[in-house]
């Protein structure tokens, strides 16, 4: 069966399906129960699965992850919600110190199968701390997987995989895309593998890599350049930030010789840097132009008055593609 859903509904569907399939899956977070989550992602789950499995917690991010770790160690599969990624830094100690390490600390005797969902990113005219894109912070932690969906369909499929994954998965939801569009979402077994990027369209002249909320302006820019210049662009949706699918990226660049990376995050030390390093390791001799980055800047994510100029736009992306083609 296929339904047209937005990303909020698709994530809700994944949670509902997995909670229905597996009694050990619990949802935990602030305002996720009676209120259904501030973005309504968990709407209806409280009524369906009850307060012991849809847990409204006191207001403490470190405790949400810390107790989730305990639950996971004891055999549950918690799906924790950080209300906004900007508040998630309070749980970073538990993530780096324990969730990510219990497996290696015990040489595999203990594992921590949990998911931390968090809306991230700008473009919704929100308050301070509600607009950052800090996936690199989580990607840098060994033992943690970081997934960022871009559409309702891949959000559902990847969240199902994340819940079934034996390790901690940070699942960052582009809140700008939550209700931006609908698409058909399969309710049947459609699971996408974590750690695999998706080639959305094949091309021969240039590779564009992006993820999350940046996929939409990127796709628009790619279409504009293709229409105007008749070039063939390969477009990759990264989907998993860590562990990164270097093979798909390098393989593509070997074919096209040119690459543009689009990230919402600040320019330095972000996933785009890692992508370029991967190309350097595996496909440097195929390059016909330097790899270009379109990104945020190394400044505090501005309040929303100045946000439109901070976030990469399809114009900035289009110019980077054109300059790389013309190099």
């Amino acid at each position: 069966m296929r339904n047209k859903l937005n990303m909020v509904q698709a994530i809700n569907l994944a949670l509902d399906q997995e909670m229905g399939n597996d009694d050990s899956v619990v949802a935990i977070g602030q305002d996720i129960g009676v209120n259904g989550g501030v973005f309504r992602v968990t709407e209806g789950l409280f009524e369906k699965y009850g307060e012991s499995r849809v847990i409204d917690t006191p207001l403490a991010e470190s405790a949400i992850l810390g107790t989730s770790i305990g639950m996971a160690v004891a055999g549950l599969k918690p799906v924790a919600e950080m209300q906004f990624s900007g508040f998630s830094y309070l749980m970073f100690g538990q993530l780096e110190g324990h969730a990510a390490r219990l497996r290696s600390r015990t040489q595999g005797a203990i594992s921590v199968p949990l998911v931390v969902r968090m809306p991230y990113g700008g473009g919704v005219r929100a308050l301070e701390h509600h607009s950052e894109s800090r996936e690199a912070m989580y990607g840098h932690v060994p033992g943690v997987k970081v997934v960022i969906p871009s559409t309702p369909s891949n959000a559902r499929a990847l969240l199902v995989s994340a819940i079934r994954d034996p390790d901690p998965v940070i699942f960052m939801e582009p809140k700008r895309s939550y209700r931006a569009f609908r698409e058909e979402v399969s309710e049947e077994e459609h699971v996408m593998e974590i750690g695999k990027a998706q080639v959305l369209q094949e091309g021969t002249d240039l590779t564009v890599v992006s993820w999350g909320a940046m996929m939409r302006p990127t796709l628009q820019a790619v279409e504009e350049v293709q229409d105007q210049r008749g070039v063939s662009i390969e477009l990759i949706d990264l989907l998993t930030i860590s562990p990164m699918d270097g093979d798909t990226i390098s393989g593509s660049v070997e074919k096209t010789g040119r690459c543009v990376v689009v990230q919402e995050a600040p320019k330095s030390f972000g996933p785009s840097s890692e992508i370029i390093a991967t190309i350097n390791d595996n496909a440097l001799m195929y390059l016909e132009a330097p790899v270009r980055r379109v990104s945020g800047y190394d400044v505090a994510t501005p309040y929303f008055g100045r946000e439109p100029a901070y976030l990469p736009t399809n114009g900035r992306i289009r110019r980077a593609i054109e300059e790389t083609l013309d190099f």
């Binding site: 847990i55 470190s62 405790a63 810390g66 107790t67 770790i69 305990g70």
Partner: peptide
């Protein structure tokens, strides 16, 4: 840090 793990385990119980 372990105090929170203990509470989570107890919740599962």
């Amino acid at each position: 840090a372990q105090a929170l793990h203990a509470v989570g385990i107890a919740y599962a119980m």
